[in-house]
Design a protein around this nucleic acid. Structure first.
Length: 781
DNA sequence: CAGTGAGCGAGCTTCCGCTTGACTT
């Protein structure tokens, strides 16, 4: 419809995002057609064997369904175009997309590649005058990254299926992320709480000056920083305990404090850098308590409305235009002295082929309060606006005074040193617009004269208890991953989502990430069998090698054969490592956790991950299939097994907890009648089961015998069931429940009942239809 | 401390990194 290019053909410009199309169209005018590729439209297939590892790691990129439509659309546009200009993002992935566009479009017109880092008239037009070609080494690096991730994930995950449990995944990004969450949980478990005291003395003067006790006879009084998670105190500091503290406080009350030193220092704080994706996710969480997925959605919405720049970036850099606009806004609000002489420049941490975008900032800085936004959108926009403008303002400056006071106490006799400090802000600078809860309004303190003596008006003993390291939140985990350069801005939110599928959970109304028992089991397994794959430096080292490929000093085959087959000095190669694990790792010999020893039998009480099961398990239990008979993690003691919910905290797994589970339900409990027969439930050596008359029926492993009702289990009691006789063959047709779930059977021929079909509604017609299908179901896509 | 039900079929799961949709009210 919008084909007005009948008279003369125009260049076709392709960008990644449709959101860029209209802006760039406006800049380029009628002489160009601008279209979007919508990101990666092709990929190697997500199934086994997509990479031919025997043949120099060759693989074929295939269009996705949506990708096919996009390529068709672009091919139509190209048919009438005078030339093809590839304007995908200026990073490694963008180069790959440009390369794949050429591969799939097979253009017959001239092709060139342009790169601009921000969509401004100057940059876009300059890029058009600086035509380049696709860089083959950059494409090779992108391809290597893609293949390595595939080889890692699709080789290690199957080992999890055979050694831990089915349906689990491992990968270069998710596995170190899981490691962080699990190790933090174990640090919390190993944490030893320490109680310690501090003493605060208030000086008897008009101003409220509170001095803190620092040393007793030159020995530093331990602060929280001096005490580690095991409760050890870093020398020379020593813990001040309550009885001593009270005695000393009483003695201090009787003494006076002499000023030994008064020091004045300049105080200066730079503004925070403009937002990267990770910074903004972190800040949205701490200010608005919104998790990563929703936060990313709100950021996207603001971007789609044209209000903020591209929301997935790891660069804090601002374009020259944006810096000038931010300075202008600051000057209008606070006058010319509120910005430094020159604009403040911010640089990405890692200068590489990876940063294609600038920081997240308002598209139009003169727009202070856009109309028509939801409360969340408005709040996020306001944060972005403040942080961007503040980033160009002068430092917050002032003076910090620290005064040192001496006291000699009697009963007990000690020489005590106390300090007090305070800061006076002279120039608020950037804090007028943006401050964090940590930069609390400082309390000022006047200077003191050495030798002056003050009486003490009050002495207070403050008792403190050390806190275990905090669990990660979505935002802090993302920050930790980013600090290790693991993962990319476009994947931060999805990573959290995929962890939540199996490996982590949170309590209601809380964002703290707690590992599931399955998550703990997988981390243990990976740490034992594949430690170098979950090393936090793995990705960084990968990136360095990819840089060598870009520079032309290494190749895809070098790097992948080293990783996968050939190995190097320290690493025997993934294939060989996996072979060893498959041969030598016996799950029965490995426990997730040794909980303790049974006080009477002396049998060890251990946690096991649970083995193969049919159907996917959800931690929240919304979709647990009734057919599942095993799979939940379980506690093992002697010959007894008892299931524990996957979302049990490690700290709950004590001997007492295990014993209550192991001891409680050995007796059958009658829950009602089914077809006139009494139904009772019980836990046996193979897990929970129901008895109906003389028949017994296994129940899902996480069934709680004490609370389960007849209604909960009644559907399971209907199997096996005769559906009638097949009118064609005359054979009786059954629906049965077996190890792998519900299935239908006719004369020894079987078909599984699909998970989405309610097995209680299976009729003869349904069964015959299933049996008519070919035996080997072809997996769709 | 320990004799606690019964057991028929085997296909599939998985990676990371780019992008936006589209069910309805």
């Amino acid at each position: 419809m919008n084909k007005r290019n009948t008279s003369s053909s125009r260049p076709l410009v392709i960008v990644e995002s449709p959101n860029k199309v209209s802006t760039i169209s406006k800049i380029l005018g009628d002489g160009f057609t601008v279209k979007a590729s919508y990101g990666h439209f092709a990929d190697i297939p997500a199934k086994r064997g997509s990479i031919d590892t025997a043949k120099n790691f060759t693989a074929t990129y295939v269009l996705s369904k949506k990708g096919q439509e996009i390529i068709d659309m672009l091919r139509d546009e190209l048919a009438t175009a005078s030339e093809l200009i590839l304007a995908t993002d200026g990073d490694r992935e963008g180069e790959m997309i440009a390369f794949l566009l050429v591969e799939f479009l097979q253009p017959t017109v001239p092709v060139s590649r342009i790169v601009f880092n921000s969509i401004t008239r100057i940059e876009v037009l300059a890029a058009l005058d600086d035509r380049k070609q696709i860089r083959p080494t950059l494409v090779e690096a992108a391809r290597t990254r893609r293949y390595l991730d595939y080889l890692y994930g699709f080789s290690v995950s199957p080992v999890l299926w055979s050694k831990v449990r089915g349906n689990l995944g491992a990968g270069r990004v998710q596995s170190p992320a899981l490691r962080m969450v699990v190790e933090r949980e174990k640090e919390r478990l190993a944490f030893v709480e320490t109680t310690y005291c501090g003493i605060e003395a208030t000086l008897a003067i008009d101003a409220q000056v509170v001095a803190t006790l620092r040393t007793i006879d030159t020995v530093p009084v331990a602060k929280s920083d001096d005490i580690d998670d095991a409760g050890s105190v870093a020398p020379p500091a020593q813990l001040l305990l309550l009885p001593d503290a009270q005695q000393l406080a009483a003695a201090l009350q009787e003494t006076s404090l002499t000023v030994a030193n008064s020091k004045t220092e300049a105080y200066s704080r730079k503004p925070r850098r403009p937002y990267t994706t990770s910074d903004l996710l972190q800040d949205i969480y701490s200010r608005l308590k919104i998790g990563a997925s929703l936060a990313q959605v709100v950021m996207n919405q603001l971007h789609e409305k044209g209000l903020i720049s591209y929301p997935r970036t790891d660069s804090p850099a601002l374009s020259g235009v944006a810096m000038a606009a931010a300075r202008q806004q600051a000057i209008e609000m606070f006058g010319a002295t509120c910005v430094p002489d020159k604009p403040r420049l911010y640089f990405p941490k890692r200068k590489s082929a990876q940063e294609a975008h600038e920081a997240i900032r308002p598209s139009n800085l003169s727009l202070r309060h856009p109309k028509g936004l939801s409360a969340q959108q408005a709040a996020v926009y306001d944060m972005v606006w403040r942080r961007t403008v503040a980033s160009q303002m002068v430092n917050t400056t002032g003076t910090t005074v620290t005064v040192t006071l001496h006291a000699n106490t009697t009963h007990p006799e000690h020489w005590c040193v106390l300090t007090a400090s305070g800061t006076t802000i002279v120039e608020p600078g950037h804090r007028r617009l943006y401050s964090t809860p940590e930069d609390e309004e400082p309390t000022p303190l006047a200077e003191f004269t050495v030798g002056d003596v003050y009486a003490v008006s009050a002495v207070e003993v403050k008792e403190h208890v050390t806190r275990p390291p905090a669990r990660y939140t979505e935002a802090s985990l993302i920050r930790a991953l980013e600090a290790q350069e693991i993962g990319r801005p476009s994947t931060y939110a999805p990573i959290i989502q995929s962890l939540r599928d199996e490996y982590v959970w949170s309590k209601r109304g809380d964002q703290a990430l707690i590992p599931t028992l399955t998550g703990v089991a997988v981390q243990q397994f990976l740490a034992e069998c594949f430690p170098s794959l979950i090393d936090y430096t793995f990705t960084r080292e990968m990136e360095e090698e990819l840089d060598s490929i870009v520079e032309g000093t290494a190749t895809l085959v070098d790097m992948l054969s080293k990783f996968y087959s050939r190995g190097d000095g320290h690493w025997p190669g993934l294939v060989s490592v996996i072979d060893d694990v498959e041969k030598s790792y016996k799950p029965a010999d490995h426990d997730v956790l040794v909980i303790g020893v049974h006080p009477e039998t002396g049998d060890p009480i251990v946690l096991k991950p649970g083995r193969s099961f049919a159907g996917k398990k959800s931690v929240r239990g919304t979709r647990s299939r009734p057919s599942r008979t095993s799979g939940s993690p379980y506690i093992k003691c002697g010959s007894r097994n008892v299931a524990v919910p996957d979302n049990t905290e490690l700290s709950q797994l004590t001997v007492e907890f295990a014993l209550t589970l192991l001891n409680t339900p050995t007796e059958a409990r009658i829950v009602g009648e089914h077809n006139g027969e009494e139904v009772s439930v019980k836990v046996g050596p193979y897990g929970p089961y129901a008895t109906v008359g003389s028949r017994s029926v296994s129940l899902p492993a996480d069934t709680d015998i004490a609370t389960v009702s007849l209604a909960d289990i009644q559907p399971l009691l209907t199997f096996p069931r005769s559906l009638g006789v097949d009118p064609v063959s005359g054979d009786e047709v059954f629906v049965k429940r077996g190890r792998y779930g519900i299935y239908v059977e006719r004369a020894g021929d079987t078909r599984p009942v699909p998970a989405e079909t309610d097995p209680t509604t299976v009729t003869l017609e349904v069964a015959l239809e299933l049996l008519a299908r070919p035996k080997k179901a072809r997996g769709k896509r």
